[in-house]
C-alpha cells in the first residue's frame, strides 16, 4: 500500500498564456484513494488529464511506476491502457449500452465480452438497459454507463472527475459503492475530483485542496478536516471560503 505510483515534480500546464496548473510536488501511492477538492477553475480537471497522460505538461516531470512518462499524442499506449477517466460529462458512443461498455475491451483486442459486460452492468444496476441506445439514457444512467465502461477495464488507476455532480442521492450512493468495492477487491488507485466535502471525507484516504492551480494542502483525511495546517484549508473545510 505504500509503494509510490505517481510522482509529480515541478509540473505546470498552461493554455495560451494562462497557467492553469502548477504542482511543485505530489506523490500518489498505489492503492490509495485521493480526493481532490477546491473551487471551480482550480485546475483539478487539468490535473486528471495529466495523470491520464492525455496531455503533455508544459514543464516538470510525471513519473508513473518509476518511469517518467510524457503525456499527449506520443504517450505509450501500454501505460495509457492501465489508466482511465470517468469525466464529469459522460460522452457515450452512438451505440447500445452494452456496446459502450464493451468498447474499451474491444480496443484491447478482447472478444466474447458479453459475460463480463453483463456482470458489470448488473453491478451498476443497468442490466435492463443493455440493448438500449446509449444516447437515449437519462443523466444518471449515462454516468453509470460511463462508470461501468471504466470499471470493466480493471484499470490500475481510476480517475473520476466529479462523477456524481448533478446526480440524485440514489445514483450517488450506487456509484460510490461500485468504486469502493473495486478498490477493495482489486487495489485500484483512485483519484477523484469533487465539490462535495462530505463525499471527499467518505471516500478519500487522503484529501488535497487546490486553489488557483496550486496545491494548498495534502493530508490524511482526518487530519485534513480536523487539524488543517493552512489557514485557507481551514476556511475551506468550514465552508467560509468565498469564491
Amino acid at each position: 500500500m505504500n509503494e509510490i505510483l505517481y510522482a509529480l515534480s515541478g509540473v505546470t500546464k498552461a493554455y495560451g498564456r494562462r497557467t492553469v496548473l502548477a504542482v511543485d510536488d505530489l506523490t500518489i501511492r498505489r492503492g490509495e484513494t485521493l480526493a481532490v477538492v477546491g473551487p471551480s477553475g482550480a485546475g483539478k480537471s487539468t490535473l486528471l488529464r495529466l495523470l491520464n497522460f492525455l496531455e503533455p505538461a508544459a514543464t516538470g516531470t510525471i513519473s508513473f511506476g518509476g518511469q517518467t512518462i510524457v503525456g499527449g499524442d506520443d504517450a505509450p499506449l501500454a501505460v495509457l491502457r492501465r489508466i482511465t477517466t470517468v469525466f464529469q460529462r459522460p460522452v457515450l458512443l452512438k451505440r447500445t449500452v452494452a456496446a459502450n461498455v464493451a468498447y474499451g475491451l474491444g480496443l484491447r483486442g478482447q472478444r466474447n465480452t458479453q459475460a463480463v459486460v453483463a456482470k458489470i452492468l448488473d453491478a451498476v444496476g443497468l442490466s435492463h438497459l443493455a440493448g438500449e441506445k446509449a444516447r437515449s439514457l437519462s443523466g444518471g444512467e449515462a454516468q453509470r454507463v460511463a462508470l461501468a465502461r471504466a470499471l470493466v477495464l480493471h484499470p490500475d488507476v481510476l480517475l473520476l472527475d466529479e462523477p456524481t455532480a448533478n446526480l440524485d442521492p440514489a445514483n450517488v450512493a450506487l456509484i460510490e459503492q461500485a468504486v469502493a468495492q473495486m478498490c477493495r477487491e482489486q487495489g485500484t488507485t483512485v483519484v477523484f475530483v469533487t465539490h462535495n466535502l462530505f463525499q471527499a471525507r467518505r471516500m478519500g484516504d487522503r484529501v488535497a485542496l487546490m486553489l488557483d492551480g496550486r496545491l494548498v494542502e495534502v493530508g490524511d483525511t482526518d487530519a485534513f478536516f480536523e487539524h488543517p495546517v493552512d489557514p485557507r484549508t481551514a476556511a475551506f473545510v468550514r465552508g467560509e471560503m468565498v469564491y
Binding site: 492525455l54 482511465t84 469525466f87 474499451g104
Partner: peptide
C-alpha cells in the same frame, strides 16, 4: 463530432487510429 469524444476514447485506451 463532440471534441470530447476523442479525449474520452483516448482515456479508454484507444490508439490514435482507434
Amino acid at each position: 463530432v463532440d471534441p470530447a469524444l476523442r479525449v474520452q476514447v483516448r482515456a479508454l485506451g484507444a490508439s490514435h487510429w482507434q
